[in-house]
């Protein structure tokens, strides 16, 4: 059985828990996953499912998750993590995968406009700087999950939001860095690559059906690919580069479109959560 299948089983089984027990277990899960990035996925997820099945049985016998698993879940979870084997090879593969994904994301950003050049040195630097952030944020999310006191939870939440802002800030600042490793891809090459990625991406979406927040990242990347193509297809190139001057209405219109987009995203998240 693959880790994904175990996670899907876990989600299905979790629905059997009462609200209080579910909150306890979900916090435990967040802690274990947040602190277990070095651990073998299969072992970690199998253990979480094993505990879940036992919590469901305990609930059936009138025992709460807290009574069963313990009043100090963090201590037990840390011990369980310590007993699990590390998967350094899997972790390295994951880090490199993440690095290439980030390079891809930043490259797309730079490829939208025709005739654009790619500063490979800067892209590598941006991606390398960004790699530790998801792990740090995941660690903080896990740490915040089992903190009984509101103060500590607030501190960790602050670190999480601060971390996200810091990561975005660093990426923007690194846009100012210029290296000599410049590549200028021909427009037809970009068109071919963007087209293939767009088709591949659409197939991927229809098969995988990504959930929040990945759906937004995917849509953002798809839109960038579409823009990169539209800028290079002769039939649409003129429309894309045509000067649009709405005079005093430019900014109100931009704001209106922005607000509409925010509302749409909000509506999507609200519906998804409902």
């Amino acid at each position: 059985m693959k880790a994904d299948k175990i996670i899907a089983d876990n989600k299905q089984q979790r629905a059997k828990l009462s609200t209080g027990n579910k909150a306890y277990y979900e916090n435990l899960t967040l802690f274990m996953r947040g602190h277990g990035t070095l651990k073998n996925d299969m072992v970690l997820e199998s253990s979480l499912l094993e505990i879940l099945n036992d919590l469901i049985q305990a609930q059936r016998n009138g025992i709460s998750a807290r009574e069963y698993y313990g009043k100090t879940p963090q201590a037990q979870a840390q011990e369980l993590l310590a007993a699990m084997p590390n998967d350094i090879k899997g972790f390295i593969v994951f880090v490199f995968g993440l690095l290439f994904e980030l390079i891809g994301m930043f490259t797309l950003n730079d490829l939208v406009l025709p005739g654009s050049s790619l500063d490979v040195g800067r892209l590598l630097l941006q991606a390398a700087v960004m790699v530790p952030f998801p792990f740090m944020i995941l660690w903080c999310v896990g740490s915040a999950a089992l903190k009984a006191t509101g103060k500590l939870e607030a501190v960790f939440n602050g670190i999480i939001y601060g971390g996200i802002m810091l990561a975005l800030g660093i990426v923007m600042l690194l846009n100012l860095v210029h290296t000599s490793l410049i590549v200028r891809p021909a427009d037809h090459v970009v068109l071919l690559v963007a087209g293939s990625l767009l088709i591949g991406g659409l197939i991927w979406i229809s098969i995988q059906r990504p959930k929040l927040p990945f759906i937004f990242i995917t849509i953002y990347l798809m839109l960038q690919l579409l823009l990169a193509m539209l800028y290079r297809i002769p039939a649409t190139k003129n429309i894309m580069t045509a000067k649009l001057d709405l005079g005093v209405w430019t900014w109100p219109l931009v704001l209106l479109i922005g607000m509409l987009l925010v509302c749409l995203v909000g509506l999507f998240i609200w519906k998804h959560k409902k």
Binding site: S47, I51, Y69, T72, Q76, A83
Partner: peptide, 11 residues
């Protein structure tokens, strides 16, 4: 607490 059992089983 039965949470103690799982690390022991794994070890």
């Amino acid at each position: 607490p039965k949470g103690t059992i799982y690390p022991l089983l794994m070890t």
